[in-house]
Design a protein around this nucleic acid. Structure first.
Lengths: 99, 99
DNA sequence: ATGTGGGTTATCTTAATTGATAACTAAAGA
DNA sequence: TCTTTAGTTATCAATTAAGATAACCCACAT
């Protein structure tokens, strides 16, 4: 095992308290982006088509969906996207096991 | 019945198409704020205490929780709040009945 | 009456997201 | 090969959320 795996990074990151918050936040947005892409594709829309519906540009749609982008989208942005692909947004809060 | 009720406003607002999206967005954030307050209270924290945990000010917490505020919070903001009260954020997409 | 604690509102500043345009890659077809 | 389509990336301007400070209200207690 030469190069560090994602799991390695994960372990090291969780070491520091402040980094942990960041990690969890990233994982949540990562999950979100995957869902957004799936919704769009299921709706049979391209980024360009969705952009047109939302009166914006395809580059902005790409930025929103792209995992590499460092942005944390506004709730309203997520909602507009969801509505455009025929869905409502529901936010749930799951209790954490605080050891 | 002299003054208009919220229900009246709702009906009138739904009349126009562009306003409808806005209404749905508002209702979602309204729902969110109620949940946030409930989580904080269940955690036994005041706005001041939560603000301290998040290294911010109680006025900012109030703005986030307050229904009247016109802001649409960032996903990361919601997550930080949730983590501080011992919860994880999960976003779900509910299919709409497109008549 | 005075003070304290919890929450709200207003305002300014700062930081970040979003809008918009353009240039680019990669894949698929004609 | 040339073209088109889908998606990415970079950049800058414009909008907006978040940080910070201060003043305020209200309930409650001493």
């Amino acid at each position: 095992m030469s190069r560090p795996t994602f799991s390695d990074f994960k372990q090291e990151a969780l070491g520091e308290l402040e980094v942990r918050e960041e990690y969890l936040a990233l994982s949540a947005t990562y999950d979100l982006r995957k869902k957004l892409i799936a919704l769009r594709q299921k709706a049979g829309l391209t980024q360009q088509q969705l952009a047109t519906v939302l009166h914006t540009q395809k580059s902005n749609i790409s930025r929103l969906e792209n995992v590499n982008s460092a942005i944390s989208p506004k709730l309203s942005t997520i909602e507009q996207y969801a509505h455009a692909v025929g869905h409502e947004v529901k936010i749930e809060f799951i209790p954490k096991n605080h050891t």
